[in-house]
């Protein structure tokens, strides 16, 4: 096996809180192979963004990595100094965020910003070559008339166009790792389809690996080879995309899939997971999902002992004491059956 592009092992992150530290990422382990897309899904607040910020060394000052490690192409980067990280970011490791305005400078021309990103990592390149590369990149992501467009400012671009410009900037130095946090959430579906298409084309050309964070199960289903489902700061299940949808083994994944409305199933009540996701300051003991779980609600083991992310074969991993039982029951739980809540 080749060295993974990215690997986290038992990564844990805490925020400082008035009543002591709050652990929002709790022993997260995953690997990303060369050329692979790993989808990271989970409800709002489940720790997806914080996991990625920790990977990139961009945690806010109130947060810190309390244990575990992060490796990029085999090298530890959680302990690397800021200079080394800066060289990585925008070079071999690039990011795409939900809101392009957070990464685009409103007072600089689009072309200038992309040129800066290139110059920073390739100091030897002349101005002419950089300018040509900027136009090439904008053309690559489907910005029409890239030459003229490169002289415009971000506000002169539509939302979808800005997202393309940000992708152009992210791929400027042919990164080995793309980290995309909800890259199309703010866009309409038809524009989202355009942007995802562009991203896939570009990835096919550069061979970059990608971690794609989204709460849209449909989007990861179509893009990722493997999917990690997060719940309350932990990975509940990690498996090849087909397996997540065909043979889910964690009760939370099963509940999520069951609650998903479909264009085909109509007229019935949707299945739904009862209750609310937990507050990270009061994460339930044992399995964090047990109060809402149709299997674990009344089982003492689920309330007392934290399940580890364990292998089920075929590259499937689930953190559930009763994964086999869950898997066997999944067929009847989807599309209906998982505790219909009022």
């Amino acid at each position: 096996m080749s060295v993974p592009v990215l690997e986290t092992r038992d990564l844990a992150v805490e925020f400082a809180g008035p009543e002591g530290p709050v652990r929002v990422v709790d022993k997260v382990s995953f690997t990303l192979d060369p050329g692979e897309v790993l989808g990271l899904v989970g409800e709002s607040g489940s720790g997806k963004s914080v996991t990625l910020l920790a990977v990139m060394g961009l945690l806010p000052p109130t947060a810190r990595i309390v244990s575990g490690e992060v490796r990029f192409l085999g090298q530890r980067i959680d302990t690397a100094d800021e200079t080394a990280l800066q060289r990585l970011r925008g070079g071999d490791m690039a990011m795409i965020f939900q809101d392009p305005m957070t990464s685009l400078n409103p007072v600089l021309r689009i072309g200038t910003q992309i040129a800066e990103a290139i110059a920073l990592h390739r100091p030897g390149l002349g101005r002419r070559a950089i300018a040509a590369r900027v136009v090439e990149l904008l053309g690559m992501v489907g910005v029409p008339d890239p030459e003229a467009r490169s002289r415009q400012f971000p506000h002169e671009f539509s939302g979808g166009m800005r997202q393309r410009a940000m992708i152009a900037m992210a791929i400027a130095n042919e990164p080995k790792l793309l980290i995309a946090d909800e890259p199309t959430t703010a866009l309409d579906v038809t524009i989202q389809a355009q942007v995802m298409e562009v991203l896939e084309e570009v990835r096919a050309r550069t061979g970059s690996s990608m971690v794609l964070v989204t709460h849209d199960l449909g989007l990861v289903a179509e893009t990722a080879q493997r999917i990690a489902v997060m719940y309350a700061g932990r990975i509940a299940e990690l498996a090849p995309t087909e397996a997540i949808f065909e043979r889910p083994a964690h009760p939370y994944t099963i509940g999520l899939l069951a609650s998903l409305p479909s264009l085909d199933a109509t007229g019935e009540m949707l299945a739904s997971i009862p209750g609310q996701p937990p507050d990270m300051r009061q994460r339930p003991p044992g399995c964090a999902f047990h109060p809402r779980c149709h299997l674990g609600r009344d089982r003492t083991r689920c309330a007392g002992e934290r399940p580890v992310l364990a292998a089920l074969g075929d590259g499937r991993l689930a953190a559930c004491h009763y994964a086999r039982e869950a898997e066997a029951g999944a067929a009847t739980a989807i599309p209906s059956g998982v505790g219909v809540a009022g």
Binding site: E43, S44, H215, L217, G255, L256, S259, L260, P261, M269, L270, A271, S272, I273, P274, Q276, P277, V340, A341, G342
Partner: peptide, 14 residues
């Protein structure tokens, strides 16, 4: 989120 969305959609139908 989807699981909560399902609860509200069911409530509306009910």
């Amino acid at each position: 989120d989807v699981s909560i969305q399902a609860q509200i959609v069911n409530l509306l139908r009910e």
